[in-house]
Structure formats: structure tokens, C-alpha cells
Amino acid sequence: MKSAHLDALLEAQKTKQPIVLVTHIKSGAQAVVTDNATAGALKLTPALRSMIDKARAQDRSMTVEAEGERYFLQVQIPPRRLIVVGAVHIAQSLVPMAAIAGYAVIVVDPRGAFATDARFPGVTLSTDWPDDALNALDPDRRTAVVTLTHDPKLDDPALSVALRSDAFYIGALGSKRTHARRLDRLREAGFTDKDFARIHGPIGLNIGAVSPAEISLSILGQITQVLHTPAAEKAA
């Protein structure tokens, strides 16, 4: 591996940008591919490029064959994130479940009594106000946002930021009645039905969940479903 390629991989880690290292297995010739640039001695054919795109979309490193030659695609991509607003009881089961599923989890709750290391050992906690916290975290298309506080003054600012972001999943805990009132408030704040279609509320798959752990399972199940449903099907 060329020194410059290693530096590119490390820089991408630091800046949390996706990058693919392509290796021609027989010769060891390599190229690094980022969103805007390709560098390296290895020439990338259109067939190989489309395989790189596919590996990127699947977030998966793999060996592929193109024009009879074998290539290894090392896909380096920061983990998907789950931002949980509300360091509540449900969060205590949702957070470890999401971590097992591969998410980098951040818990946001300005109420110091809730967001404690004792309740969430080893978890990234933010005690900033939810809109400040979410603005700082800058949700992207690989981020899910879940609000669990039931408290409009905490949930609403979080949802406002989430709706203006590319977050792939937005979910809000609360009954149908609570959710209807929430949408009324957001409408007054200038959001429209198109925005509301992005909010999963009441949150979670309908699996009859009762306990906090079961509700967490239904939420994580729904996040997974949205993640792996192609955009075309979602629109249908």
C-alpha cells in the first residue's frame, strides 16, 4: 500500500467521510475512491466503478470480479448514527440494542438527572438543549433521530431540526392523540404534511409491544425497515 493511500484512509476516518480502497489482488495495484476524487495507479473500468458504487451502498467490503480479474474493495465508512432524545426508561434498552445493530448512539437530554453515565454507561451523552444538540450533531442521510421524552418543549425542537435535515428516519414516541397535537404545533411552526410524512408517530412497528424492551425492539425494527426499503417503494 502506498503511503499516500494510507494517509487518505486515515484522513477519511478523521473527517468521517466514506472512502473505498480498491486493490487488484494479483498485482497489488491500488486506487482510493472518495465522493469527489479518485487517486492511485490502478485504472478503474466502468464495470469496476459500478461494483464500487454497489459496495458503498451496501456499506460492505467485498472481493469482486471484473473482466476476469479479482479486486478487493475495502469500504471504510463511518457507522450509522442513532440520536435518541430523552434519556428515559425506553432509551435504556433501545441504546444497547442499537449499538449491537451497529449504530453509534448519542443520547440527548438536558435534564441532568436522566442523562447520567450511571444510567447509560459508556454512551455518548449530550445535556445540551435538543435543538442545539441536534444542530451540532448535524444529522445526515445515515442518521436516525428518535424522540422519547413526551415533553413538547424537548421533543419539538429536536423534531424541528430533524425535519430540516437529511435524517433517513425520524420517529416520535406518543399516542395518536399526542402525535396529532404535536403535528398541530409543528404546523404552526411552519411545517407541512410533506414534512409530517417523514415522522413515524406513533413510533415503532405494530408488534403489540408493551414493555420498554419490546417497544425498543419495535422502534429498532422500524428503523431497520426504513433503512432497507428502497426509496421507490417508500414513495409508492
Binding site: 456499506d59 449499538a99 453509534a104 459508556g122
Partner: peptide, 12 residues
């Protein structure tokens, strides 16, 4: 923000 969450990442 305090400690990082210990989650598996694709990159080593």
C-alpha cells in the same frame, strides 16, 4: 459529550 459509544465499525 462524554465517552464514545463502543460500537462495531466497518473500518479497523
Amino acid at each position: 459529550m462524554s465517552t464514545e459509544t463502543a460500537t462495531p465499525t466497518i473500518s479497523d
